[in-house]
Design a protein around this nucleic acid. Sequence first.
DNA 1: AGCCAATTCTTGACACAGTCAATAATCGGA
DNA 2: TCCGATTATTGACTGTGTCAAGAATTGGCT
Lengths: 139, 139
Amino acid sequence: MTSSSAHQLRERGLQVTAQRLAVLRAVAGRPHCTAEEVTEAVRGEIGVISRQAVYDSLNLLVQKGLLRRIQPAGSSALYEDRVNDNHHHVICRRCGQTADIDCAVGAAPCLNASSDSGFRIDEAEVIYWGVCPGCLGQP
Amino acid sequence: MTSSSAHQLRERGLQVTAQRLAVLRAVAGRPHCTAEEVTEAVRGEIGVISRQAVYDSLNLLVQKGLLRRIQPAGSSALYEDRVNDNHHHVICRRCGQTADIDCAVGAAPCLNASSDSGFRIDEAEVIYWGVCPGCLGQP
DNA sequence: AGCCAATTCTTGACACAGTCAATAATCGGA
DNA sequence: TCCGATTATTGACTGTGTCAAGAATTGGCT
């Protein structure tokens, strides 16, 4: 687990540091977590880490394809480690809870825009908004 | 034009003020503009307006369905006045330019998530990411 | 027209997420 | 083990947006 993370880092030309491993583990352990939650988790695990190191690691890991970032309207950025499958997200309008939703049809159903205005499109990001089961119960 | 905006405001139980009309006109005249751009536009039109009044107006108008807000990752919120048609957006990864994209198939093609995790979904927000024609020319 | 209560605007302080820049510590290859 | 390059820490800072109190405006009413 840890060693494979280390391997993934090295493979991409990155140094292996305690901070980066802990960030990876924190995100793996709690999907859709914020930078602050990562910070707290990492602090609980390796003692101290600076805010900057968390942001640096997260940005780097997103850039290198080890993590994925989602930035829903009205909340701070969330991170997850499901990077190789095509899935989207549902967010509860009331409590903000975020869940994964697998793509409905095939691999990238929404990538076919009718008129693309000349853009070269490489990604379709879909966020579903609604109300989660928990909040549905208490109106 | 102006009188119909005034009518729309009254219809929703809102008072008609110079600030709100100017905000509406600013957004109508420049699609996908930020709060700051609205502020500048309004200042050019009616002299002065406080930042707070701009935010209040925008939030209220979004809430009342006269404007639509989009909040792409990595940029501040954008506002537009196309509220009655179902369309999405393409954003250029390089320059941030935003354009409208009409829905590919029917009215709401992406609203059918396969497993909705028990959420009651009411909206599917789609953002396409890519590179705009202008930026494609200069790699 | 003029008045009054409710709504709206202004002003200024504030909160939060994220970034910048300089210095210190760590990693990993020789 | 040592050294250069990469990474972490620290602290200041920016931008976007919100909160709260008082002043101004709106629009219904007489």
